[in-house]
Amino acid sequence: MPPKTINPPKRKGPAFKPPRPVNATKPTATKRASATTAARAAGVTKKATTSRQNAQQATTIISSSESEDQGEAPREDSDRDELMDDASDDEPRDHQPAPAQATQTSPIPSQLLNRLLHENFEDEGTQIQKGAMNLVEKYMDIFVREAIARADVERRAAAKEGGIMDGFLHVEDLEKLAPQLVLDF
């Protein structure tokens, strides 16, 4: 079934990316953006919307070096969304088969994940199909990406409340998002 028909409304949700050039990694970024957006659709759409606002406010505050971008930021943003929508229709077919890219973007090497899974089986004899293994890989990939994306949102929220604004992800951010994240997975 064509991917487009299912979630155009979801994809409209803002990606978590600040409006900056994405340079060489663009196809990957596209893939990730649509993946995360869709994954988030279950419960955090509202959050995502606020994050866009936060993001823009954060840009206004952060530093003088970025003040030039301010005027253009919203427009670039909407442009980008359209680009992504178009791209995600055509590009996955072209780019996903590239194995180099796939290995590059996976947070956990498959052998390590395989080992970790088997370590935690209670029954030594339990096996896992190759296809299922690939799917678990994707699952963990989404999990880690979600964690980082949500941490970024938390960081912006904290910065907005007058906390530290050093552009660092802190453990506190992770602590705030962990319960919901684990519930969502």
């Binding site: 994405v22 980082i148 941490a151």
Partner: peptide
Amino acid sequence: NRNLNATPRFIGALTELVYTQI
């Protein structure tokens, strides 16, 4: 990609989280 930074403690905590999740 996101023009961010992460503290080492963040990475450690995320590792624990991912490990538990796995």
